[in-house]
């Protein structure tokens, strides 16, 4: 799980072009949207594509998005549980 979290942080920084951030700057429990990293709805779409492209996981139910993308940790847990 730790390795996956580190990979995920690097992928998020690259996909969302968070230029001034390093992986260690992202707290794995920090909210991705709102107060934490301050991501928005366009970033949510980028993260959905990232999950499908890099991990082969399709988010079928949009209502689950809030739960899945709550933090880096919840994303990693979702990937671990759903990756084939």
């Amino acid at each position: 799980m730790d390795k996956l979290i580190e990979e995920l942080k690097v992928e998020i920084i690259e996909a969302l072009n968070l230029e001034d951030m390093e992986p260690e700057d992202i707290d794995i429990n920090e909210p991705l949207f709102g107060d934490g990293l301050g991501l928005d709805s366009i970033d949510a779409l980028e993260l959905i594509v990232l999950l499908e492209k890099n991990y082969g996981i399709k988010v079928e139910d949009p209502k689950k998005g809030k739960e899945i993308f709550a933090s880096v940790k919840t994303m990693a847990e979702y990937i671990t549980a759903h990756q084939k």
Partner: peptide
């Protein structure tokens, strides 16, 4: 590369 799928919004916008 992705055969017309998995397109991200930012570069399109």
């Amino acid at each position: 590369e992705n055969k017309e799928s998995l397109l991200t919004p930012t570069s399109f916008i």
